[in-house]
């Protein structure tokens, strides 16, 4: 019997939320560990990918909280090595993506992940204003958010000389349309809260 997906059960556990929002079934995982064995970032993660799935399977609130507070979900590169090898075809990157937004929603972002979050924010804000990637804008935004002012500055002159960093933002046509997309997403997120 499938547990009814009503508001009550949704509040209860992450497993069913993931099922509803991403279509991914955590229960498919049978803990073979192939995802973790192939994960290039596993050594850096505080919870290995297969353990993360097992924790979600149990529906134990303490463990779900640990998952949302883990560094794992932020370190995941979405390289999809795990997904392409998973015998049960569990889309772990998709689940990781979901967990990242859930973690932000619940203000449970891992402290070590603040730089990563800053990078994501900078990236998106340049895309929003420029319409595509603008390196200098991205770097400036990242440094302003993290105060890592001197990080990697020594490579800047060479990159500038070789034309890898464009001073002028590569603006696209109809940038307002891009901004509209961002606004629309924000609107949807507000509604969900």
């Amino acid at each position: 019997m499938h547990t009814e997906l009503n508001a009550e059960t949704l509040n209860l556990n992450l497993k069913h939320k993931i099922k509803k929002d991403t279509g991914e079934d955590i229960m498919l995982c049978y803990q073979c560990g192939k995802c973790t064995a192939g994960c290039p970032l596993n050594d850096e993660m505080d919870i290995s990918p297969n353990q993360l799935l097992r924790m979600l399977q149990t529906e134990i609130p303490d463990l779900e909280e640990k998952v949302l507070k883990s560094s794992t979900i932020w370190l995941c590169l979405s390289c999809e090595t795990c997904f392409s090898r998973c015998p049960k075809e569990v889309d772990l990157p998709k689940i990781m993506d979901y967990l990242r937004s859930e973690s932000m929603r619940q203000n449970s972002v891992n402290k070590k992940a603040s730089d990563i979050v800053a990078f994501h924010r900078s990236f998106l804000s340049t895309v929003k204003s420029v319409g595509r990637l603008y390196e200098i804008g991205l770097i400036a935004g990242y440094k302003a958010r993290t105060f890592h002012l001197l990080q990697d500055v020594n490579v800047a002159p060479t990159m500038l000389l070789n034309g890898k960093l464009k001073i002028k933002p590569p603006l696209i046509k109809n940038r307002s349309e891009i901004a509209k997309i961002f606004d629309r997403i924000k609107e949807l997120e507000e509604k969900e809260k």
């Binding site: 019997m1 499938h2 229960m27 049978y30 803990q31 149990t58």
Partner: peptide, 14 residues
């Protein structure tokens, strides 16, 4: 057995 775990949501604990 997978049916019991995946469809009937039996909680298997090792």
């Amino acid at each position: 057995v997978r049916r019991a775990i995946e469809e009937d949501e039996v909680n298997y604990v090792r």
